[in-house]
Design a protein around this nucleic acid. Structure first.
Lengths: 195, 195
DNA sequence: CTATTTATTGTCATGATTGACAATAAATAG
DNA sequence: CTATTTATTGTCAATCATGACAATAAATAG
């Protein structure tokens, strides 16, 4: 009985607002006031539904990493054994799936990790998994390439993917999407050119 | 007459401290108190020698961009007409010249540029010049490659260069230096493989 | 309607950040 | 030593960010 709880939906709204704030102002610049304003709620409500700042940050980090792992798994699992690199290119560098905010948030988390031991371990694991999965996909298609080459190509793809959207604050991410895609193809093609 | 001024050296110390703080805490996280502590001075002295926060930021941005242009020009001008790509690889990906703080500061400036019209224009110019110069160097060596390929390779090199040191907070920049270098070579070699 | 639960608003205290400036100490020229 | 200039220290007020909580309004069950 009693008034029905909006905790779940409100929490969702608040975390989405926090997410957008981090993409725009960074973690340090995302004050509770800004988050409240971005979510269209009073600051007291932010506290009421989620808690203090620490709880808010914990929840955001958990959520971002969980969603990231989730979507990445879905993406990776959908990659066919044959011609997987085409899927990679499409998934990483098409307008369609591009999400600049996402990269800016991840970038912020990596930055914060420099001063947060626990977060650092999680982001290291995150990055490791990212590269390992990519390497695995590439290995399926280019089984003759050695490990160093595969790792180099994986890191190259990730770098292109990250760097492209980290230029979003300059409004230059669209301008360099095509170059990024071409460069990515160069990296992949290099694997088949191996001796 | 009067007591000799320490304005120049103190300003230098303060801006260096600010620089380190930005690399560690970001622009928003670099409070005057932290900058003062990092420089070993009282906050009042920071104000005395440089001014308020706005003046401090203006001076830092000017200094970072000026030094960046300066060092980049020196680097680019030293590149020989023949075999320039070897110099590029060495300059961008050797331990010796690596400077993670520099990239983290630039990254912070790009991020800030999202909320600062004037800064955005300057960083756009900065990024444009970076890629243009790289493209020019590559064109000297791979004159048969078309513009799109050159631009893609340039953007790829920059992405690898940036992304590598942006992993510094995770302590993973050393681990991926070699992959980055290998990937960079792949990109460059792709230009000679052009039809 | 009543009791209960939760949303919503508002407020107050505390601490952090910044700006401004007074007061003192130190160095130098003459 | 004196006058002058600057470094250095210290302090106070204004603003912002946060935490805590009281008070009210709204919704629901019975």
């Amino acid at each position: 009985m009693g008034r029905p709880s909006k905790k779940e939906e409100r929490t969702e709204e608040i975390l989405n607002a926090f997410y957008r704030c981090v993409a725009r102002y960074g973690m340090e610049g995302s004050t509770l006031e800004r988050i409240a304003e971005e979510s269209g709620l009073k600051r007291s409500l932010v506290r009421h539904f989620v808690g203090n700042r620490e709880a808010l940050e914990t929840l955001l980090v958990d959520r971002v990493l969980e969603q990231s792992f989730q979507q990445w798994s879905t993406f990776i699992d959908a990659i066919p054994t044959k011609n997987g690199s085409e899927y990679l290119l499409e998934g990483l560098f098409s307008d369609q799936y591009s999400d600049a905010e996402y990269i800016l948030v991840i970038e912020s988390l990596i930055f914060c990790a420099g001063r947060d031991e626990a977060l650092r371990l999680r982001m290291q694991e995150w990055m490791q998994r990212f590269t390992d999965d990519l390497t695995l996909v590439l290995r399926q298609e280019y089984s003759r390439a050695d490990n160093d080459s595969l790792e180099a190509a994986s890191f190259g793809l990730i770098s292109l993917y990250f760097n492209l959207d980290s230029l979003a604050p300059l409004g230059m991410n669209q301008r360099y999407r095509q170059p990024a895609r071409i460069a990515a193809r160069y990296l992949i093609d290099s694997l088949s050119a191996e001796k």
